[in-house]
Amino acid sequence: MSSAGHIGSTDAPSSRKTVVARILHITDFHFLAEQGQTLLGVETELSFAAVVERANQTPWRPDLALLTGDLVQDPCVSSYQRLKQRLTALNVHCYCLPGNHDDPRLMSELLPSENVHVSPQILLDKWQIICLDSTISGKPNGRLSDEQLRLLEISLTEHSDRYALIALHHHPIPSGSLWMDTMVLENADEFLTITQKYPHARVVVFGHVHQAMDEVYGRLRLLASPSTCFQFKPLSPDFAVDRAPPGYRWIELYADGTIDTGVERLAEMPAGLEFTSKGY
């Protein structure tokens, strides 16, 4: 099982805890085939750039970025090449996994570079990050294959000395929006049963829902983050666009297995956002 190396720990004077890693979680970029195109009225590439700029303006500096799917809306060479250029400029190691709009094969061929990785596992000091592929080819809903479930269990078994953060695209718990929950992880019960067998499994991070979530399931903290483009209205029975701006989540992993996390957003919504749309 491959690893992109180890990230060392630093001291966090404000918390008096040892920080193992500071993670920038960004998700659901929906890059389009051509620069300048819009989705729901939003130029998604510019919105992504604005979120990254917002993160770069803060004194908090990440050790790595975790990108949890729907990196592109149109899975083609041009969209992934432009995304790669944007990520290379981030000057931080970026770990990517696919969403239902992505092409995992193209991602693996086009994205990897010196600082962009498509890797199932990241080994840190006292923590590991396990990146799972929950996509079903040609379908918007998600499922973890037997191979992905074995990867999860092997990673948790072989590195029982490390706390675990597990990343995937599809939400493994209901969001409360009926239309979105038709695309919940199909075998979420099987996934969650495995995680509950290992007390060192501590955090699950996901995208797909285009909104912030922070829930607890047993020992697990389950976290979703805003999209870098448009947001879905929480607890809505039908497709609806929310008036919350794009954003990102910051996560700090501590050596004692605890975490701190929060969400930061742009000051304004993207120009042109179509609030009356019934889908995309």
Rank of each mutant, 00 (worst) to 15 (best):
Gly138Tyr: 10
Leu66Ser: 09
Leu83Glu: 10
Lys139Ile: 00
Phe31Arg: 08
Val204His: 07
Ala21Phe: 12
Ala21Asn: 03
Thr195His: 05
Pro112Asp: 03
Asp103Tyr: 05
Lys139Leu: 13
Asp181Phe: 04
Arg162Gly: 02
Phe31Lys: 07
Ile130His: 08
Val204Ile: 15
Gly8Ala: 14
Ala212Met: 10
Arg243Met: 03
Gly207Cys: 02
Asn187Lys: 14
Ser47Asp: 09
Glu114Asn: 07
Tyr280Cys: 04
Val52Ala: 08
Gln121Lys: 15
Glu153Pro: 00
Leu192Ala: 10
Ser15Ile: 13
Tyr248Phe: 15
Pro246Val: 05
Glu45Leu: 08
Thr88Ser: 07
Leu110Phe: 09
Asp102Met: 04
Lys84Thr: 05
Arg61Val: 06
Arg219Asn: 14
Ser145Arg: 13
His101Lys: 12
Glu268Asn: 09
Ile194Pro: 04
Ser137Gln: 15
Ala65Pro: 00
Thr193Leu: 05
Asp181Ala: 08
Arg105Trp: 07
Leu165Val: 05
Gly41Glu: 10
Pro246Gly: 08
Ala4Ile: 08
His171Arg: 03
Leu152Glu: 09
Leu235Cys: 03
Leu273Cys: 07
Ile26Ala: 14
Ser9Thr: 15
Leu185Asn: 05
Cys94Ile: 10
Ser79Cys: 05
Asp256Arg: 11
Gly142Pro: 08
Leu90Glu: 00
Leu66Gly: 09
Thr135Ile: 09
Ser113Gly: 05
Arg202Leu: 05
Ser160Asn: 09
Leu151Tyr: 07
Ile173Val: 14
Gly279Asn: 07
Gly142His: 10
Trp250His: 03
Leu168Ile: 12
Asp242His: 07
Lys17Ala: 09
Ala271Gly: 09
Met1Ala: 08
Arg22Tyr: 05
Trp127Gly: 03
Ile173Trp: 03
Lys84Ser: 13
Pro234Ile: 15
Thr44Val: 10
Leu46Gly: 07
Arg249His: 04
Arg265Leu: 06
Glu268Pro: 00
Tyr248Val: 02
Thr195Pro: 00
Thr58Ser: 12
Cys76Trp: 01
Gln121Asp: 02
Leu235Val: 02
His25Ser: 06
Leu223Phe: 09
Met269Ile: 15
Gly41Thr: 13
Glu252Thr: 13
Glu109Cys: 10
Pro270Gln: 04
Ala33Pro: 04
Pro237Cys: 10
Asp146Gly: 10
Glu43Trp: 05
Val184Tyr: 00
Gln57Gly: 14
Pro104Val: 10
Leu66His: 08
Phe230Cys: 03
Cys76Ile: 00
Tyr95Glu: 07
Arg143Cys: 11
Ala255Tyr: 11
Ser15Thr: 15
Lys197Asn: 09
Arg61Gly: 02
Arg82Pro: 06
Pro174Gln: 06
Val204Asp: 05
Arg61Phe: 01
Phe48Val: 08
Leu156Ile: 13
Arg143His: 13
Glu153Cys: 01
